[in-house]
């Protein structure tokens, strides 16, 4: 199949997947509640909260909620639905769809987490534009790696335990970049250095997307 047809197919599937997610709204609601509970517990424990601790806690919570959200989109699927997709959808289209749906969800969740933390723990970010850019580029980094990892751990004997064991080390390069870039947003200094990190993040995103296109079909066939 030529690439444009592949992408068109992925877009159709994206609409389908987004509709499925909104119909099963309790799933996304579960992730949102995860954040509410997490931020509420943190603001009880971390008081007063310094800017560096704010940022560290933000990324830790985002990391945990992304593992929870992405793994649910695979492991929470019913066996029948999963088989149906396997038979009817080519791996590459499914990969692009999952990355897009996951990224959309993570944008929502990351924004929501920032709002919650702003409400309960103050808002130390000085350069909000740069922080939004970090979220924009950071979400696909988390989603690409975790989608591949959840697809990998699906047939294993303990999928839920494998997710963090495989995912965290793979996410370290991305998390380091995300943290550096958002630290610049926190301090609100000159944006010169920010472009280096943003460029590295775009590069890492593209590499992971390409790796997924090459590797996902192998995870998909059975």
């Amino acid at each position: 199949m030529n690439p444009s047809a592949q992408i068109r197919r992925a877009l159709v599937l994206l609409g389908h997947d987004v509709r499925r997610e909104t119909r099963q709204a309790q799933a996304l609601a579960g992730s949102l509640l995860y954040l509410v509970a997490g931020v509420f517990a943190a603001q009880l424990l971390l008081r007063p909260v310094g800017p560096a601790a704010w940022l560290t806690f933000y990324w830790l919570l985002v990391l945990f909620v992304s593992v929870y959200t992405v793994s649910r989109s695979f492991l929470g699927q019913s066996r029948g639905l999963h088989l149906y997709y396997r038979v009817s959808v080519p791996g590459v289209a499914w990969w692009l769809t999952k990355v897009m749906t996951g990224t959309l969800m993570m944008w929502v969740l990351m924004g929501f987490c920032a709002l919650l933390m702003a409400l309960w723990m103050g808002y130390p970010i000085q350069d909000t534009g740069l922080f939004v850019l970090t979220i924009f580029l950071g979400a696909p980094l988390l989603v690409t790696v975790l989608t591949l990892v959840s697809a990998m751990s699906q047939g294993s004997t303990q999928p839920a335990q494998l997710m963090p064991v495989l995912g965290f080390p793979l996410l370290v390069p991305g998390l380091l970049l995300v943290h550096r870039l958002s630290k610049l947003a926190l301090d609100g200094l000159s944006r010169d250095l920010a472009w280096t990190y943003a460029g590295a993040m775009v590069g890492l995103n593209l590499m992971l997307l390409a790796l997924g296109i090459l590797l996902f079909p192998f995870l998909w066939r059975d």
Partner: peptide, 20 residues
């Protein structure tokens, strides 16, 4: 699965060791 993970891990190791 191990083969897919191994390729992914190697490609994540490169930015870790040489770029960061």
């Amino acid at each position: 699965m191990a083969a897919v993970y191994n390729v992914l891990a190697f490609f994540c190791l490169i930015p870790l060791l040489f770029i960061l």
